[in-house]
Nucleic acid binder design. Sequence first.
DNA 1: GTTATTCTTGACCGACCCGTCAAGAATTGG
DNA 2: CCAATTCTTGACGGGTCGGTCAAGAATAAC
Lengths: 189, 189
Amino acid sequence: MARPREFDEKAAMKAVEDIFWRDGFEGTSYSDLMSATGLGKGSLYAAYGNKEALYRHALNAYIEREVGGVSHLFSDVSNPRTGKQRVGQLLDLVIAAVSERGDRRGCFLCNAAVDLAPYDESVEKIVLEAMGRMRTDLTSALKDEVGEKQCQSAAELVLSAYMGMRVMVKAGTPVEQLQLTRDAVVKSL
Amino acid sequence: MARPREFDEKAAMKAVEDIFWRDGFEGTSYSDLMSATGLGKGSLYAAYGNKEALYRHALNAYIEREVGGVSHLFSDVSNPRTGKQRVGQLLDLVIAAVSERGDRRGCFLCNAAVDLAPYDESVEKIVLEAMGRMRTDLTSALKDEVGEKQCQSAAELVLSAYMGMRVMVKAGTPVEQLQLTRDAVVKSL
DNA sequence: GTTATTCTTGACCGACCCGTCAAGAATTGG
DNA sequence: CCAATTCTTGACGGGTCGGTCAAGAATAAC
């Protein structure tokens, strides 16, 4: 009953995500969000709540897609590669974002950790949970290769290097140096 | 001649640095800066220029002190430790900031990379130069141990893991996981 | 003392911020 | 047709933003 929502909620959410991903929480204004989605301010409020709630929606959408993709990469049994090779694939994806698409937005999760997590407990929780998910996926994927004992710290190394690489991408680090990082991480396993 | 400046410029700059370090560029307002320094807005403008120039001053002060400290750690010939041990020392300092001082501001350089570097070329330049300095220090310190060929990628691994750790600190990652990263990085060398 | 120069303060400015809300448009059910 | 309900729009408001500037305070040179 009553008037149906006119806009495509998923498309609008993707637009919101892209803006927050690129410009961060403080760097994004409602006029940015309105022009990116084509919606009025009232529609955004009615659909998602205030700016922080909107940011959390966008961050969760990112995590569901991107961290979910990482999960799939590391747990796909039909993929015949070793854990080590999969880590290489993961880091190649980071490099490809820059070299093939010129995308220097880095990792939204990582940006959120620097941006809003220190000031918003619910965002901190979201970020820590998503990182924890990557951690457990990495740990189990590396268990066979580096052993029960060292798989935890190996996973931690990969996770930190991954985050670090994505920060360096935002800083404008050239691709060659990212390649060196990738090689060193894979060799260390 | 004429009226001398009343405030301690270095103390004021340190206060400015602390605020930008903790809250970022967009997250810091002039009222924050005024109450942190005890100065009027006009004095800040007269002494350092606009907000971006002020930020660059603060970032440069941070780099001179902190990156300079890293340089010293890796090039101090009176320190009898190996390069590998020095990397351990560096990462221990990261952990100590959290465990001993509860300081979760992370790395100002790293925050700047996410925060302002993508939108301000002069900040990007500052960040890349500072990272480059850490890179060369690390590379030369590791040359003896991992060899001429692999010292570059080893240095890159350490640098990325370092940045990643400091992001994870901002996200609220517990100390035990930072310890695991430290151990894995040192072992990989 | 007088003058010149610099520093400090705080009021002021236009612009933009996030958030609200009333009025109109679009749909459903009777 | 007529409600009833929901969505959309855009104007509005209180607040804060970065930045400027005039007026007064403090010093130096004379």
